[in-house]
Nucleic acid binder design. Structure first.
Lengths: 212, 212
DNA sequence: TAGATTGTTAATCGATTAACAATC
DNA sequence: TAGATTGTTAATCGATTAACAATC
């Protein structure tokens, strides 16, 4: 599951480091120690140093870390400077919001196509792109070789469309459908986003606090 | 952070159990062993039994688990049968999609108000509700006592609105803004949803696979 | 009863924290 | 040089897995 032996816990913290470093940079902070960063982020200094040292030392003894340098390094580790091409499938409420709301460019992606199976939507412009018919997916992929697909489609069609796309060379999925795309194929990266799960987790916490 | 001493890892798995049990029920499966469930979900039987036994034994030796009973128990643990009232703030692309796309009722919530500060949106109907002006938030909360706020607002306003809402008795946040709401107050439950982080994680995995 | 499978205790594994020598 | 703070090793803590007695 983890390439290079970097643990999942570390990987999941990287984007958060990146965001905080961006903020620090924008606030004019140019230098920070692990202790200060730990305080800001609610972590321990030890953990921060361990995390960064998975990728080699970016700091300097007695000084700390250069904010801008560290930010750039983490950006590079996250692959933000070598964007992957992506297509989005399913332009319902959610798909439309994802297409319009996400800043793909700053997150390491380039959105190159938007698809829906509903013919009445085809041709409509979203994010400066015409919605295409799902029936043209094969053709489009053979020509443009998108690396990632963003799935905003119903649970029922997810398995099938994912398989089709894998056949067309897609290497990763950002999956918003209620279906749990499995990580069985080691060549395929999957990131499932389950709103419902997130909301139920909140429900649990609220309820357990009531009774305590 | 964890009430009752139930670990975060366990809590995060509960909604997933719930979804799989729903699916099993809908497929007509009425009984399942931890071994079978483990296989279906990609976990170990041991972990499943450990998880369930945090809340008391729901199984029967030599038989396994009754799917519908287990589903109901987990639903009860998640608090799905005692809904919390919620308001949503910020009706941009994302807020609108969340309002229209999420099935709050089946996730333990009831949406009772939608707000935006943009006066041009006020009065518009979303999910059978008129969008209200953020200027009427105080009044509304004093009258209706929402327990949870869903924040789909810009980073900059998050801290301030969250504080205002805590003052008005709000006990939990489902936060979609790019701001990391801190969990410092033990009476307040926070669930941050960071799309950008999720997407960057995918970017990392794609990139690390390229080089390997 | 015999077979199956849980609930639960013990063992292992991995992640976080603490400590400290290296070094800027 | 003295003070600060990293990089890194060792200790601790927690979560997962294995094992097995209890029991349906």
């Amino acid at each position: 599951m983890n390439t290079n032996g970097i643990s999942n816990s570390v990987i999941r913290r990287l984007p958060r480091y990146y965001r905080f470093l961006e903020d620090l940079k924008n606030s004019g902070v140019s230098r920070i120690s692990s202790r200060e960063l730990a305080e800001t982020m609610g972590l321990t200094a030890s953990q921060i140093r361990q995390d960064f040292n998975c990728f080699g030392g970016f700091g300097q003894q007695g000084y700390g870390y250069n904010v801008e340098l560290l930010r750039m390094e983490i950006g590079r580790i996250l692959g933000l400077d070598s964007p992957n091409t992506a297509i989005l499938i399913g332009v319902g409420n959610l798909g439309r919001a994802v297409a319009q709301h996400i800043n793909f460019e700053t997150k390491g992606f380039q959105l190159i196509g938007i698809f829906d199976r509903k013919e009445s939507l085809v041709g409509q412009i979203v994010r400066n792109m015409p919605i295409r018919s799902t029936s043209t997916l094969d053709e489009f992929c053979k020509e443009n070789r998108p690396q990632v697909a963003i799935l905003c489609i119903p649970k029922e069609s997810t398995r099938e469309i994912a398989d089709q796309l894998i056949g067309l060379g897609v290497k990763g999925f950002w999956n918003f459908s209620h279906f749990d795309l499995a990580h069985d194929n080691p060549d395929i990266s999957v990131e499932n986003v389950h709103f419902g799960d997130s909301l139920m987790t909140l429900s649990y916490r609220l309820n357990s606090k009531k009774t305590t």
